[in-house]
Design a protein around this nucleic acid. Structure first.
Lengths: 154, 154
DNA sequence: TATTGTTATACTCTATAACTATA
DNA sequence: TATAGTTATAGAGTATAACAATA
């Protein structure tokens, strides 16, 4: 007798994806207007959120992107004059990345519209429920690793 | 004076993605063992969840994939003997897709391990909180479209 | 003419490995 | 030898358009 799978609608990854898709549907057209992919925007935001320049590996971690992806994205953003690199004096391998004036201006141009759409969502969904949702999502993201699960049965 | 963006940690898409990444980290190795991408697994699950065969467009809708992606995925799954196609008698354009015996067997082989990992997450996160999370995610996915937002300011 | 599904195309991201240049 | 970042490569998904077969 086989174990049944939960119903498809009770798949946690699917539920998370559906919700994310719904939210992104509000933001994608705005990003498209500025020729930005989601990942490029995540990178710009990560840079906008920090005072001090940050290194490539740090960007990868904060944006949930892989090193090579960040590398390519930075190449693109640099060619558009949106970011700047500075080699770290004490370690020539490292690069300190920051928004250029143009990049900061772009983020600031997008911000009001982005915030307005976010406010729409918050208003329709409810401020309290949104706060509760953030709480649950943060806690879910922080649950601990299962200790040592074998990759194959033997 | 520019509008500031919310802090990066209060980006709803990011919070949803972080949570989803955390959950998928539990399931990806299992899928990899069976040479299945997330999207292929979504497709198999959608098929496993239904009694009657379903059409390509229906699969696309239920799995949140695009038509061309589903087309390619079905081609792959068919070449592995996991699904079957039957042309709909009343409309030769349509194809009715279903799991083959082999496909059903694969889903049933994966199901116990998948359920076990899900149970781990539920146990660590809390049954009640998980139920609350589903409720909020479902509601978020269903908030209504903003009526008519212009794509460019003029 | 409209619709279902496939094919074509261009782009992007994922994932891993190999490589360069530092350290 | 190890590390930071880039480049190379293969594979897959996204998105849109064009297309064939059928309605």
């Amino acid at each position: 007798m086989a174990t049944d799978l939960r119903d498809f609608s009770r798949s946690l990854p699917m539920a998370l994806m559906r919700a994310r898709e719904r939210v992104m549907r509000e933001f994608r057209p705005l990003l498209a207007e500025h020729d930005l992919s989601e990942q490029q925007w995540r990178t710009l935001r990560a840079l906008a959120a920090t005072q001090a320049p940050i290194e490539v590996a740090e960007i990868a971690e904060r944006t949930f992107l892989l090193g090579p992806s960040v590398s390519r994205i930075l190449g693109n953003l640099e060619s558009r004059g949106l970011i700047e690199r500075q080699t770290v004096a004490t370690d020539q391998r490292r690069a300190a990345i920051s928004l250029s004036a143009k990049g900061r201006a772009l983020v600031e141009r997008i911000a009001p519209e982005s915030e307005s759409r976010y406010a729409d969502i918050e208003q329709r969904f409810g401020t309290e429920r949104l706060a509760e949702l953030y709480l649950l999502l943060d806690e879910l993201a922080l649950i601990e690793e299962t200790t040592d699960r074998p990759t194959t049965r033997r």
